[in-house]
Simulated assay, not measured.
Amino acid sequence: MTGIVTLTAAGAIDATYRVGTLRRGAFARADSYAREVSGKGVNVSAALAAGGADTAAVVVLGTDDVRFARAGLTAPLLRIVEVPGATRVNTSIIDAGGATTKVNAPTPPLSPEAWDATISALGVELAARTSPWLVISGSLPELAGTGALVDLAAVRAIAREHGARVAVDTSGAALDALLADPVGIDLLTPNAEELSATVGRPLDTLGDVVTAAREIVSRGVTTVLASLGADGLIAVTADHEVFARAEAPSVANTAGAGDAALAGFLLGLTREPAAGVDPLAVAAASAAEWGAHAVAHASTIVEGPPLGIRAVIETTPDLSHALTDEGQA
């Protein structure tokens, strides 16, 4: 099976509080509290492992939290690059109605030495796998002393060196920098809001999303997988689009659904499709099922495959269909 290596250059500790009611400016006592090593690449690798894939998560963590990380459920997947101090904490507060309020800590800068160590760890993991995927996930830190984000040129170079296909799930300045030179990116996974910001206009219908995705494809990206939140998702290539949607058995925590959907898409792509079956449809269905599976989990780390969840697939979707959700995942 194809190996998949994820990069989380800004690792995190996820803290999740469950409260009955959340009111601005008021005191609330949590009904429960959970803490786990996270970051988008770690979440992706956890879902991949739950689906039976060979995966490793290269993640930058503060030394203060390494002992905690090595005792967690994801410990076997982690390839930790240690930096001084504590890891940033991202906080989710989920009320009794299922609404999630999320506050992410700022991303601390990374020293040149730590960035070099991160690149080296990626090289080791990619070299250990045949025809691997490299998934670049989450926010990117600044390179200390430069005022600029770490340069992904070295990451893309090491991917080419090891024949790795590249998937990217990031936003903001990091996404803008990648889209300035996107040739060689095999898969890009924005949500509707990020895609809208990239093309500079609102996306009101499925057709608007497809048109925007094709603009990105025309720049050199092979496939765009656009998450539309409760509306589902759509995979778009230069000449083909597939829409997929799956019902979640319940909604416990929406954080991490996009990470699970990306993992599901890669799991679908790495399967050998039956004769006559569209591989893009298989991957899109798998993405929708894993995303629905994730929102039923209390934590951002999913356990086990999405049993009993089946996606509805449309290989000729109605492009006039109006979007009802903001598309965030």
Rank of each mutant, 00 (worst) to 15 (best):
G184W: 04
L187W: 05
A180Y: 05
E194T: 04
P182Q: 00
P190M: 11
L206D: 11
L195A: 08
E194S: 00
T211R: 04
N191C: 10
D181A: 14
G200H: 02
T211C: 02
V183N: 03
N191H: 12
D204G: 13
L178Y: 05
V210K: 08
G200E: 04
T205R: 11
L178R: 08
G207Y: 02
P182L: 03
D208G: 11
D204K: 06
L206T: 09
L203K: 08
A180Q: 14
L179G: 12
P202V: 05
G184A: 01
N191T: 11
P202Q: 11
A180F: 02
L195Q: 09
P202A: 12
V210L: 12
L195N: 13
L187H: 10
V199Q: 05
R201E: 03
V209K: 11
D204R: 11
A192R: 15
D181I: 01
A197H: 05
G200T: 06
S196V: 03
N191I: 12
V209M: 09
E193A: 14
L187N: 07
D208P: 13
A192E: 14
L178V: 15
G207H: 08
T198C: 07
G207C: 11
G184S: 03
V199Y: 08
D204T: 08
A180C: 09
L178G: 08
L195F: 09
A197K: 05
L178A: 10
L179K: 07
V183F: 01
E194N: 03
D208L: 13
T205L: 10
A177E: 15
L188Y: 03
L203T: 08
D204N: 10
L187F: 05
D181L: 03
V199M: 12
I185T: 14
T205C: 09
T205P: 07
P202F: 09
G184R: 05
S196H: 05
G184H: 03
L206H: 12
N191F: 02
D208R: 08
T198Q: 13
I185A: 12
E194H: 04
P190K: 13
L206V: 07
N191W: 09
L195D: 03
T211W: 01
V199S: 09
D186Y: 05
A177P: 07
A197F: 01
P190H: 04
E194V: 00
P182V: 02
V199P: 06
T189V: 11
L179V: 02
L178K: 04
G207T: 01
P202N: 06
D181V: 04
A192Q: 15
E194G: 02
I185H: 06
G184E: 15
L203R: 10
G207I: 04
A197P: 00
R201V: 02
L195E: 04
L188T: 08
G184N: 05
V183I: 11
G207L: 07
I185C: 10
P202Y: 06
D208Q: 14
V183Q: 15
A192P: 00
E194Y: 03
S196P: 08
P202R: 10
G200K: 01
S196E: 09
A177M: 11
L188P: 06
P182R: 02
L187Y: 08
A192Y: 00
A177D: 15
A192D: 12
A177S: 15
V199A: 14
P182F: 01
I185Y: 12
T205S: 15
L187M: 09
A197T: 04
D204F: 02
T189C: 09
N191E: 14
P190S: 10
